[in-house]
Amino acid sequence: MSAQYSSGIQTLLDAEQKAAQIVQKAREFRTKRVREARDEARKEIEEYKAQKDAEFKKFESEHTQGNKAAEEEANREAEAKIKEIQAAGKKSQDKVIKDLLAAVLTANPVAPSKA
């Protein structure tokens, strides 16, 4: 009878050991699958980010070219105005200096009035 009990106990221990191995394999599989899912998600995120970066750069290049053209036009207009102002200043420079010297060097005393 004790041989029968010991063989039954041994069978239970063997079954328990096999169950533990199955559980361990399931945990390893689950861990592996979680890692794979995380890697897949990370890869998808990187691809999505690269796609959106490319879309943004395309959008930016399309819209900044118009701004560059407007900026260049504004710079040309500003340069033209600056040259015009400099030419006008050179044209009347001698007269302005003469008028300033005359105003500074000529004294016109005025008596104070009684108010």
Rank of each mutant, 00 (worst) to 15 (best):
V23T: 12
S113M: 11
A107V: 15
N67F: 04
E84T: 09
V23Q: 06
E28H: 12
S113A: 11
A15R: 15
D99A: 06
T31V: 03
A74I: 05
E28C: 07
I82R: 13
K95G: 08
V104H: 04
A19N: 14
D14A: 10
A74W: 00
A50N: 04
T64V: 08
A41P: 01
E40C: 07
A78T: 01
S113R: 14
Q86M: 08
A37R: 06
I82S: 10
E60Q: 06
A78S: 03
S6L: 07
P112G: 05
L12S: 03
P109Y: 03
F59V: 00
K98N: 09
R33V: 09
G89Y: 08
E47Q: 07
E55C: 03
R33K: 14
A103S: 07
Y5P: 06
N67W: 03
D39E: 14
E28N: 11
A3C: 05
R27Q: 15
Q4H: 12
T31D: 15
A88T: 11
K98P: 04
I97N: 05
E79K: 00
K32C: 10
E44A: 11
Q4A: 14
K98Y: 09
A70N: 01
G8F: 14
G8H: 15
G89V: 13
K43N: 02
A88E: 11
E40R: 02
S113T: 10
A26L: 11
S6G: 09
K52I: 07
P109W: 02
T11A: 13
A19P: 08
D94H: 06
L100I: 09
V104Y: 05
K81W: 04
K114D: 15
A80G: 05
E77Y: 02
Q65N: 03
T106G: 00
K52G: 01
E62S: 03
Q17T: 10
E46W: 02
D53C: 07
L101N: 14
N67I: 00
V104L: 08
L12Y: 14
K91G: 04
V104W: 13
T11N: 13
A54N: 00
K90N: 06
L12C: 03
K43A: 02
R42M: 14
A15P: 15
E44M: 12
A87N: 15
Y5R: 07
Q4C: 09
A78R: 07
S6F: 08
E40L: 12
T31M: 08
F59W: 05
A15F: 15
A69S: 07
L12D: 01
L101I: 06
K52A: 05
N75A: 11
D53L: 08
F56R: 02
S61G: 04
E71F: 02
E36A: 06
Q4W: 15
K98D: 13
E46F: 04
T31F: 14
A15V: 13
R30M: 09
E55M: 00
